[in-house]
Design a binder for these strands. Structure first.
Lengths: 344, 344
DNA sequence: ATGAAAGCGCTAACAA
DNA sequence: TTGTTAGCGCTTTCAT
């Protein structure tokens, strides 16, 4: 008789005329089993191509060995790379990933957390949607003792571990760089105001201006939804509302910077000579556009690995205290901001 | 006593003094249960915030309601969009996704299929790694009656359903376009020879040349690994080995086209006037690079939806015959190939 | 060292 | 209509 179903522990037990307990123990290398029977069981298991059924294991162990990952969108390259990092660390520890995207919608994010909770993931690694301002859906996870780790788009209102980069410093450095390149009137296209990273990068921008004695002005600041479309429209708006156009643009992220780049070129200005431009994140494309985009590189892969590691730490540690890891960024200077500076 | 664990069917039964069977039936809307008890059970379940444990359901139903998705890399934008499409259709049908990447490695792909099989996914949706030339790891899935759907990077050696675009036609059209733009010597940077899509796109290229009476030559064809790096190096190679440089480049994918674009510009040639350039896929970046890239648009989201639908069809149909869906591409003409053509 | 039995949360065949 | 029972594949007491 051909059995199409995978071999079970019981099949092995029957074949060898031993108890399922013995098989279970042998398979998991428990001590109280004689070397001979153990070897025999192991050998037979191999012959029968036995693979433990993780569903059954989950049911009895009350853990699924899967991590839920919740990101705003698959199509943002930043997250693709972070997920790779998460997967690397997770796989090494025997965990699978279930990845969902919120599509930048708060409602979808709430639904996703419910789905993940119901499917009994052992933990959740999240970057918030750009709409998210309320966090009670994560409290429900915490109530069930499901560890939550936030990264990139985080909140400080939840008692959870976090992985971020030093947004303030990265922002400060790139704006400082624009200033050193001779920019006097630097516009900033920020992100959604409710995101912490928006506020941190904005602060870095403002502090850099102040440090170099440049006037900040709300007229030079716009809040975007992080899309290339708004990069285009807000750049147009900045041009249209200013008598003298800005001589520098700092965009919250590369996508917005690409939108700004298109618009600046369409308006007939030269980058970087008339207007210098910088973004944030260093997406692969940043090196390819013309002119290549000056930006702030984030250690995406490492962010993913770190987030997964924080989850693992929490799982293995009974009384775990949330920690926040701050990774360093790196200024990447490319053609979009490189101009000859007249030395005073 | 505070119970931190989710409510079970048994909790409800105990509270209401009915059998678990009754609860199970009421919850799933089975007929043989009185309206009153049914309402009572439903109400209590809601009050206790009952959520069925999918692990337990999986164990008894012998299905996990999850689909394994196996792609070459998260960082290829094409796949990000396809996954979105898969997820849309899968979620609607109550399926979760487990996504793995092979990292373009045959070995990793084999490992991933093993992992997915062990985790008892109900089916697998795959795009092959660029190294894959042997397919026996998928036969193991088929032996266990796990449906396999291939997309994009497929093989015809497996009796499974497939989703592809009309690579031949898309390729033919874009090369025809280059010819109509006046190109006489069009180079082709192809993909890995073992991929079917490489051969189909190559054939479209060759047939278009032939149809317009242009000579094809192996000297103008190179095989790449689909990376931007090889786009750069093979373009250099083409320049270095040709006395007269090509006046057109058709790249197997946009990434390779970007590499070619960088190189062509670095060599001091004008795009499109000296050399016209086209890619394949229409990644979001294609519209942003300078000059914007002429390419062949693929219905990525729809590819994902179709693949998921083929899986669902197979699940719901006892005697299912594999089908191959061929979706249409669309030529997207942009600046990289737009030149004034002198009319004879 | 070995095995019988209970149980994880649920479904389903069968009785009552 | 309702409840009893067995069982999915595995782990874990607790006897033997």
């Amino acid at each position: 008789m051909i059995k199409n179903h995978p071999a079970t522990i019981k099949d092995i037990a029957r074949k060898l005329n031993v108890s399922v307990t013995a098989v279970s123990k042998a398979l998991r290398g428990m001590p109280d089993i004689s070397p001979q029977t153990k070897q025999l069981i192991l050998k037979t298991a191999r012959e029968m191509d036995y693979q433990p059924n993780p569903i059954a294991q989950s049911l009895v162990n009350n853990q699924t060995k899967t991590i839920g990952v919740l990101i705003p969108s698959f199509t943002i390259p930043f997250y693709a790379s972070v997920i790779s990092g998460i997967q690397k660390t997770a796989t090494q520890a025997g965990y699978n990933l279930v990845v969902c995207q919120s599509d930048e919608s708060y409602e979808t994010e709430v639904n996703n957390t419910r789905t993940l909770l119901n499917s009994r993931v052992d933990g959740v690694i999240v970057s918030l949607s750009r709409e998210t301002a309320d966090f009670s859906h994560f409290s429900r996870l915490l109530d069930r003792n499901v560890p939550v780790v936030l990264f990139n788009r985080i909140t400080e209102e939840l008692p959870v571990s976090r992985v971020v980069v030093d947004d303030y410093k990265g922002s400060y450095q790139v704006v400082e760089h624009l200033i050193l390149m001779g920019c006097k009137r630097i516009a900033h296209i920020a992100g959604p105001p409710n995101l912490l990273l928006t506020r941190n990068r904005l602060k870095g921008y403002l502090d850099a201006l102040k440090a170099y004695g440049l006037a900040a002005s709300d007229d030079l600041i716009r809040y975007s939804d992080l899309t290339i479309e708004q990069g285009i429209s807000l750049t147009n708006e900045l041009f249209d509302t200013q008598n003298i156009p800005p001589d520098g643009f700092f965009a919250i992220c590369d996508s917005v910077a690409f939108g700004a780049m298109l618009t600046i070129k369409n308006r007939g200005w030269q980058i970087p000579d008339d207007i210098a431009l910088a973004g944030f994140t260093d997406e692969p494309v940043a090196a390819i556009v013309e002119p290549a985009l000056t930006t702030v590189s984030q250690p995406t892969y490492e962010i993913g690995q770190t987030a997964a590691q924080l989850f693992l730490d929490q799982i293995h540690n009974k009384d775990y205290q949330p920690v926040t890891k701050v990774l360093e960024t790196r200024l990447v200077v490319r053609k979009s901001s490189m101009r000859l500076v007249l030395q005073g």
